[in-house]
Design a protein around this nucleic acid. Structure first.
Ligand SMILES: [Zn+2]
Ligand SMILES: [Zn+2]
Ligand SMILES: [Zn+2]
Ligand SMILES: [Zn+2]
Lengths: 164, 164
DNA sequence: CACTATACTGTTATAATATAACGTCCTGGG
DNA sequence: CCCAGGACGTTATATTATAACAGTATAGTG
């Protein structure tokens, strides 16, 4: 029980993405109910926008979409919704891009690692507890008590490797 | 030869920090000479400011210091110098903080991992090739060709653990 | 049902981080 | 000396994020 798992593979090819979105929203719905969190209209919509493609979404792109919805929206609107979603474990922030992706395994406690394609921006999320533990352990060797990790790997996904 | 090494330990206690700075500048000087890069007055000064403490420095803090120097300085001045230093492998960018630290092992090729104390902001840089390789390998399992990694761990350094 | 406490959202303003574009100057090589 | 390229200065602007405060919806409570 220390094996790597793939929380969200690359989904660059064609697939029924509406299904991805519906599933993510349904999981979020039930996760929030379980935890007594309020999954409001706005939060649902922002999560839907984060999931609109399998690439990290920027806060201001989400903001533009909300405005297109006709909703009166300003930066705090989107940042607050994102903060909620982050706290609820429904999205992750990609630090190296200032952008946000839907979590591939909400509910399952995990420390995600992200693979990000430079070419097409697709993102995959994996859970490699062995690596997370090794990092925590190495840190401990320096007297450091780790509590969060940011692991982001950039490169080329298989599709883009072929065409490169 | 896959052992973890510490490129820059936590240096929170008192130590002769002028020595740290002098060493870093001397190493940079020779690294640039070796690679035929121009280690100009400005670049040297910015590197000196990055090294002014063992905590990540923000671009605009560096800018303020340059202005205090009397030098006419604007954001591009500092960002260009930082870009040079990053390319030359003399500093690293901490993505999760939008800040910059001096590299603990310039010259030695390495993929750094960073430990960042939430309390005192001190940073340590380690080189754990086993972890870097494990990540690259896991990525390969998904058909992903990794070329860069961002690994940043937040927590409490030993000193701050005690007082917490 | 009204009352209230709290969380959620709207709104305005501003802070913090980063880059574009263009002109000048310096420096090294011919 | 002259030139080409790189380094730097300068102005403007883009991008990302938060502060502060006002209004609104919601879930309990009596
Ligand atoms: Zn999909
Ligand atoms: Zn996740
Ligand atoms: Zn020092
Ligand atoms: Zn380094």
């Amino acid at each position: 029980m220390l094996k790597k798992s793939v929380l969200m593979p690359f989904k660059t090819g064609s697939h029924n993405h509406d299904q991805c979105i519906d599933l993510a929203l349904a999981e979020a719905e039930s996760a929030c109910r379980r935890q007594g969190l309020r999954f409001t209209r706005l939060r649902r919509r922002v999560l839907e926008l984060v999931w609109s493609r399998h690439i990290p979404m920027k806060a201001y792109d989400i903001l533009d979409e909300l405005r297109r919805d006709g909703r009166g929206a300003a930066p705090p609107t989107v940042y607050r919704a994102l903060d909620f979603l982050l706290d609820a474990g429904l999205v992750h922030r990609i630090e190296s891009l200032n952008a946000y992706v839907g979590c591939g395994g909400p509910g399952k406690p995990h420390i995600g690692q992200f693979l990000i394609c430079r070419q097409c921006n697709a993102v995959a999320e994996i859970d490699a507890p062995a690596i997370a533990q090794a990092l925590t352990q190495d840190a401990k060797g320096l007297g450091f008590r780790a509590d969060t990790q940011t692991v982001e790997i950039k490169g080329l996904c298989s599709e883009c490797s072929v065409s490169a």
